[in-house]
């Protein structure tokens, strides 16, 4: 009996410690494309535990089922499904963060942080959030409420790698739950986000690795790249929308000589500008 009480007390204190600290520690998750549990496949950087001023968070979200009817050899939907949020993870993230270290003075961690819109406060500890393949996301009302709160408090969301009209509509369905009364607008070339480090007046479509198979820079009917945003009442971008492009793949494959350098370079520059814009606005 006494041992049980001690055990409960220890558990409770850990729980209390966790609540008190409210910042979840780093951990890895099973990915669609990379098996992080196999350290040979994608080892952790040596300094993964180093505490820094900044890191980029990746949003874990529930997804719709397959939109386009594609499945892999395991019978898992290639698009959609519970692991949709892990597309490019963690290789894309780790490459990108190395780029941040090399190209800016941001003191970044070498590894990403996975966050949830689960009603817990942890998401607010990571004001820079990235979500991939949001053409498949399916936010609940509660998740949308928390995302709205996150953004209005000062958080920044960058969404990427979703293509065409169908995926745009799926994205919009959840995004409209977050901000039903805010317009999504095309970013003007003069916007500071395109000039905060690099001048990015001449942008072009950045395709994903599918280009090496299809030979096309677009997917579905996403012919033209769209740089769009949702602004707050002070004229600051809260949500930066990269539609009809795949920056995540560009970061992921930037070290592969088969992936053209010009796309990788632009993808990094866009990311650096977007991160710097967030930290200066």
């Amino acid at each position: 009996m006494r041992l049980r009480m001690v055990f409960i007390a220890v558990l409770a204190s850990f729980g209390a410690w966790g609540v008190l600290h409210a910042q979840r520690p780093f951990r890895e998750y099973e990915g669609r494309e990379y098996n992080t549990s196999e350290q040979d496949e994608f080892p952790l950087p040596a300094d993964w535990g180093q505490k820094t001023e900044w890191t980029r968070a990746r949003l874990r979200y529930p997804a719709v089922g397959t939109l386009h009817g594609w499945y892999d050899y395991r019978g898992q939907p290639v698009d959609g499904g519970p692991l949709n949020w892990t597309i490019d993870y963690p290789r894309s993230d780790r490459h990108l963060l190395q780029g941040v270290r090399r190209l800016t003075r941001i003191d970044t961690r070498s590894v990403e942080q996975i966050v949830d819109l689960d009603g817990d406060d942890d998401v607010y500890n990571w004001p820079m959030m990235y979500a991939v393949e949001v053409g498949h996301w399916n936010l609940t009302d509660e998740m949308a409420d928390q995302l709205r709160e996150f953004l209005l408090r000062g958080g920044f969301l960058m969404v990427d790698d979703f293509h065409g009209t169908l995926e745009w509509n799926v994205f919009l369905r959840s995004m409209n739950k977050v901000f039903p009364d805010r317009k999504i607008v095309d970013l003007d070339n003069k916007d500071p986000i395109f000039h905060v480090i690099y001048d990015l007046d001449d942008r072009f479509q950045v395709p994903g690795w599918q280009w090496s198979v299809s030979g096309k820079t677009y997917e579905y009917d996403g012919f033209d790249p769209k740089w769009r945003a949702i602004y707050d009442d002070h004229g600051r971008i809260m949500v930066a929308i990269c539609h009809n492009m795949d920056l995540g793949d560009a970061w992921e494959w930037s070290d592969d000589p088969r992936y053209p350098e010009k796309w990788a370079s632009l993808a990094y520059r866009i990311a650096m500008n977007y991160f710097m814009y967030d930290l200066t606005h």
């Binding site: 941001i106 000062g154 200066t280 606005h281």
Partner: peptide, 11 residues
């Protein structure tokens, strides 16, 4: 001297 969240939120 360095980009960080404190700079953003102070502004």
């Amino acid at each position: 001297g360095e980009p960080r969240w404190e700079f953003k939120f102070l502004r």
